[in-house]
């Protein structure tokens, strides 16, 4: 953790008020993103990672969701305490976001250029002509060929990869300090995925922005991220540098995630599986929330573990982290 992170999420807790009662899809989540740093926020669907990402810019649907505790500091400002005008000046300007579905995240009735120019007019105060010219520049920057022509085209005329590039162009148009990428490559072909990831790396090197990359796919962030935050059932269960996580994962869930990646050339007939299901956010589990699926569980796990310091910059929410690291392998299912 750097001393003065760009973005510091502390103790973020989000409540979801539904007819059946209130649940907590995000529980006491904390992490930092530094300048020029990529943090991978990893977990399976429903673990609260998207909810966390949306809460940073206060984009969660309210009601039913509500941020009930915590703070999100961008430099010295707590984004959660800003009034509606204040947060609007941050969105798309200092913190920008791209989403999983480039197909539906762009407005079908406006041209790509217009959708980028709109952000520039809003935050940079450019007039129509200069905003358009800059929008074309941005398209060029995200390596869209014939940017001037493409700017006049509509989203339906572009491929999925191109649309995600348009989304990225829109997000970086105002030189944001932090880019939140919520599953930016999940809906794309594998080859296109690689291109988009390379583009994000390149733009980061040019602009020095911090990137929070949310994904369910460890492989996606293994190359581009510096640090990884693993979430399970609304909680951060492990936080480590990429090397630390891949060489010495300290939480059984992370170990399971690592083990369930298919490896090229490995002669395994079946991938290991993490048995069971994620508890529902509404379901209160006594002690560790992973306990019931955990092959390392011991009696003490009925008592909820805090995030324990494993080594410098490496923390895990597990009483047995030493044993997990020592054994280092997810038990094979017979």
């Amino acid at each position: 953790m750097s001393d003065s992170p760009l973005l510091r999420v502390s103790n973020l807790t989000v409540a979801l008020h539904l007819e059946g009662g209130t649940s907590l899809p995000v529980r006491d989540v904390s992490f930092d993103v530094g300048a020029s740093e990529t943090v991978g926020l990893v977990g399976e669907s429903g673990c609260g990672k998207s909810m966390t990402a949306l809460s940073i810019l206060r984009l969660i649907p309210k009601p039913p969701a509500e941020i009930v505790a915590g703070s999100v500091n961008l430099s010295d400002v707590d984004l959660l305490k800003l009034d509606s005008n204040g947060i609007r000046r941050v969105r798309g300007n200092r913190v920008a976001m791209i989403f999983q579905e480039p197909m539906t995240s762009l407005n079908p009735v406006y041209s790509c250029g217009e959708q980028i120019a709109e952000v520039l007019r809003l935050h940079s105060g450019l007039d129509r002509r200069r905003a358009w010219a800059r929008a074309v520049e941005m398209l060029d920057r995200v390596q869209i060929p014939n940017a001037a022509e493409r700017a006049r085209e509509y989203p339906h005329q572009l491929s999925g990869g191109m649309r995600q590039r348009v989304m990225i162009a829109m997000a970086i148009a105002c030189n944001p300090e932090v880019l939140i990428a919520d599953e930016p490559t999940t809906a794309l072909d594998v080859t296109i995925q690689r291109e988009i990831l390379a583009l994000l790396d390149e733009l980061q090197a040019q602009l020095g922005m911090g990137i929070l990359h949310i994904t369910h796919d460890l492989a996606v962030v293994s190359e581009s991220a510096h640090r990884i935050v693993v979430m399970y059932a609304g909680q951060v269960v492990e936080e480590a540098s990429v090397d630390q996580l891949f060489s010495a994962a300290a939480h059984p869930y992370s170990l399971g995630l690592l083990a369930s990646r298919p490896e090229l050339g490995a002669r395994r007939s079946r991938l290991p599986v993490i048995e069971g299901r994620v508890p529902e956010p509404s379901q209160e589990v006594e002690g560790c929330r992973f306990r019931e699926r955990c092959p390392f569980a011991v009696d003490r796990c009925t008592e909820e573990p805090p995030l324990l310091e494993v080594s410098n910059g490496h923390r895990a929410r597990c009483w047995e982290f030493e044993r997990v690291q020592r054994e280092g392998e997810w038990p094979r299912v017979q």
Binding site: F99, S105, N107, M167, M170
Partner: peptide
């Protein structure tokens, strides 16, 4: 409820513009 509405809010547009520009036309 469409995704582009979330994008529009994410850009920092005020609700008035989100509704009358992005939502209304669709």
């Amino acid at each position: 409820h469409q995704d582009y509405v979330r994008t529009a809010y994410g850009k920092g547009l005020p609700e008035r513009l989100v509704v009358w520009k992005h939502v209304f036309r669709n």
